[in-house]
Design a protein around this nucleic acid. Sequence first.
DNA 1: CACTGACTTTCATTACGTGAAAGCCGACGT
DNA 2: ACGTCGGCTTTCACGTAATGAAAGTCAGTG
Lengths: 252, 252
Amino acid sequence: MSVLGRALSVLDAFADGTPSLRLTVIAQRADLPLPTALRLVRELVAWGALERQSDGSYRLGSRLWTLGGQAPCRRRLVDLGRPALDGLNRVTGLPVLLAALDGNSLVVVDGVGTALRPGTSLPPHATAAGKALLAHLPDSRRRQVLTDLARLTPYTLTAPGALNRQLAAIRAGAPASAWEEWHLGENEVAVPVDPLAGQGPAAALAVTARSAAQARRAVPLIVRAALTISGGLRPVGQPPHCQGVPGVDSRR
Amino acid sequence: MSVLGRALSVLDAFADGTPSLRLTVIAQRADLPLPTALRLVRELVAWGALERQSDGSYRLGSRLWTLGGQAPCRRRLVDLGRPALDGLNRVTGLPVLLAALDGNSLVVVDGVGTALRPGTSLPPHATAAGKALLAHLPDSRRRQVLTDLARLTPYTLTAPGALNRQLAAIRAGAPASAWEEWHLGENEVAVPVDPLAGQGPAAALAVTARSAAQARRAVPLIVRAALTISGGLRPVGQPPHCQGVPGVDSRR
DNA sequence: CACTGACTTTCATTACGTGAAAGCCGACGT
DNA sequence: ACGTCGGCTTTCACGTAATGAAAGTCAGTG
């Protein structure tokens, strides 16, 4: 493995969200001898990808935050999505959410009025946004994502058949929904953003309500908001949108 | 320079916000021979720090976004700040903003009701949030930041003397303000968050209004919101807060 | 005071990255 | 159609720069 590879696996040690790690743990997680880990960590600290805390442990640095925030793929979604989210939240009075697929999990891109923070991972099969995205995915990719149908509440759909039937309905035009399938007391509806793009929708826009009826009532508004975002996403031309498919280099 | 250093300077090529770059440009900006740049870029793409677009150019990848969002330093500010921002925006009806120092510029951490996106850079000397932070900084660091007092509107304070007098007043307890010093028609007031921390406040909370009077009226509310955030920032113990001082390794 | 565990330094060894040079490919001009 | 140019990719002989075992430091603990 290359030096850079090792360095990236050092960063990976933080990927699970652990706020801070000691050198020894980093070395273990990255599977590197201690001196090597130390050298890499030092260099990452010097650049600002990591920060050293007063107790000697390390955490991800603010320079990484700043740089990561520039990633166009997500940045455009936030830029275009925020006004739409704000408006939707104001009109409905409900928490709204914009989420995208990242690898095999659903990641929150932005939200208004919700406790979920950007970057949080959600189970795709048990959330309305997840279903909205899955429904429009090519079959092969969908199967790839739907490996773990964990039961999160008594209402979670864990049977592939039932889930696929719902996804087919969504593909046919029904709004995606999840009635207490993720958390009890949470009813969500969602609509894909830019659904006709190359490899599937860029994101999904979801609203959470106390009752299914309340959620359903919001659907037309969500659809409008999603269209606004989709419109902005492809101003004139083609650039469909980025996909979170990891490790695939389309061009030679 | 080390391999990792070169790789990081490849990432740096994107730091100015350019959404996408061709290989040749990356090599130029990072000051690397083409084959070297290519190898590094390939490896970064494989990991997900960069993405290759259909036209062959590269951009920052979504994995970097996800990882960067985990940086505790900023993440905690967002986690604690968002509810406070939401509330403050609802009560005042005005755009609110949470910003922190990063190197020599002010960076937007989060905002509600504003067009400014997280990650945007602002001039510290011409914004209320910038002044609130500068005022509580150690002298040496403040001078370091205040190198460029660009005139942005006719009202921008460009004389070090006048600015320092304002900063002294702020340090003495006055709320920080900027009356059309950054943009015409924008009047801001700001209050530091966690001002007693080691190296200066963690962030500043600002509100923008059409008139100075309107902004001033919001001050008590901002102070309360800032206290809420400060409170959450140090639940029990000491951990003051991270500083964006680049390249300083406090411990040996 | 010896011991442990976490971190740091040193240094002989060589693997790995280097970059000049040459090859490839598509775009453009005539 | 053909030559040309710019941008990208591959190759390969070379030597720098990364490696990791071993030894050293230091704070905390029994």
